[in-house]
Design a protein around this nucleic acid. Structure first.
Lengths: 254, 254
DNA sequence: CTCTTAATGTCGCTA
DNA sequence: TAGCGACGTTAAGAG
């Protein structure tokens, strides 16, 4: 027997929203409210948002999102673990540590949807920095002939190095991996690791920034600091056992 | 005369979703779909998400969000400027530069809401790093007696410095501001600026990390590098002309 | 808890 | 458009 997955209310009264919220909490449902509202937030920072129409999403893990009609980012939010309640016409979500309060005054609700979502799938993603590291451990020659990677995510004096290894001359080699074009920050990060290792092991330390490309500024700083660059694209794994890398073109004819 | 703000369809057929999408596009509406679906993405990275119930939001600026029932972040998305279309049972959103494709196969739609949101308000936020800088320019003594801030967001050799000034001894002083607890990354950043300025102006350069607090690792590195720390909280402006800083307690009785 | 870092980061600003 | 850095960054992983 299938239960109703979505309970929809048009122009719900406040009492109906309150009921939906209670059911959402007890049954692990997603509550979405389409409403005219104002928003107040105080916590790490403090904000106000005047009257307007927004989408409010309350998730069973405590996540609370308020979306305006532009941008990818919610205009206000509360992270997972927050506790929500209704008080008069207001939705109030509170987080502890850090203490943060979000208050949404509902002026008019146009619709509300309680969604009993069933979802047991997790995203599988490829093309990450972690996969660049795997590639390097499987085939160290992509860095250079004779390179031997030894450690992954190795804590050193001031930070955690992506890959630590030795070259054919016996120098210590630090790799800093970036899945996208590397910038000044990446160079500073690598410099910090190289300095820390030089302090412990003397000057036989090389630093290599491994990325698909470099910004102009990063290139200049890298050269000045005597650090190196190896071009490497993050690998995107195909689905299956095809010898050639399959792209998603099979579903994307554009 | 008021138009309907929200058009709600329960268990919509694919054709109805297609119609809603067209109206949403022509009338700048927000379309939200509650559906069982699978998701494919390829662009900067590549991902797959198996069958499950999710909330899909398509905004008039091209933003495209897919939310699972946990976390603040969408599991998949497309940023503003993307173009969406419907093809068979699939929603396809395409971005150019970088080229990215998102494909959502709709297996079953439980509800769809077309929301003609009117919203002319923007968020006002206080407690930012920018306000820390303002505070320092208005009252340089929060850094130290005799400090004179000269430049804000000043481009130097390898980056852009938050605040550049001179102390009472005539030393050049670089401030790196952080609105929250400063970490190793912040120290490396400051070090980069100090090194660049020392190269141009000799050794009479001081670097000061200005933040509410420091991580342990940041403290150790800062000291080793001969850099300094000044404790400063980002100011949270009150609403009005009250002499005492008003908090949001007036609406938050907890 | 704190620390450290990646991220399809996103967003805003500027040359 | 690319570069640079903030963000109420969030999220994951380790200690």
């Amino acid at each position: 027997m299938e239960m109703t997955k979505a309970i929809v209310k048009e122009n719900p009264r406040i009492e109906e929203i309150k009921e939906l919220l209670e059911v959402a909490e007890s049954r692990e449902g997603l509550l979405t409210i389409f409403a005219r509202c104002t928003v107040y937030y105080e916590g790490r920072a403090k904000s106000e948002l005047g009257e307007g129409d927004r989408i409010i999403i309350i998730k069973p893990d405590g996540s609370f999102l308020i979306h305006q009609k532009k941008k990818r980012e919610p205009v206000n939010w509360q992270p997972p673990g927050s506790k929500v309640k209704m008080e008069g016409n207001s939705l109030i979500s509170i987080r502890r540590n850090p203490k943060e309060t979000l208050k949404v005054d509902i002026i008019e609700a146009y619709a509300a949807v309680l969604f009993m979502a069933e979802d047991y799938e997790e995203l599988t993603l490829t093309g990450s920095e972690a996969e660049m590291a795997e590639l390097i451990f499987q085939n160290p020659n992509v860095i250079e002939e004779g390179f031997k990677p030894m450690f992954r995510e190795k804590p050193i004096k001031h930070g955690i190095v992506d890959v630590l290894g030795v070259d054919r001359e016996g120098n210590i080699v630090v790799l800093e991996l970036k899945r996208r074009r590397a910038d000044l920050h990446a160079v500073s990060q690598l410099k910090r690791y190289v300095d820390a290792l030089k302090e412990e092991h003397g000057n036989k330390v090389r630093g290599i920034l491994v990325a698909p490309s470099l910004t102009e500024g990063a290139k200049k700083l890298l050269e000045k600091l005597g650090l190196e660059f190896r071009k490497l694209e993050p690998p995107k794994k195909g689905k299956k056992k095809s010898s050639k890398q399959r792209t998603l073109d099979f579903f994307n004819p554009y």
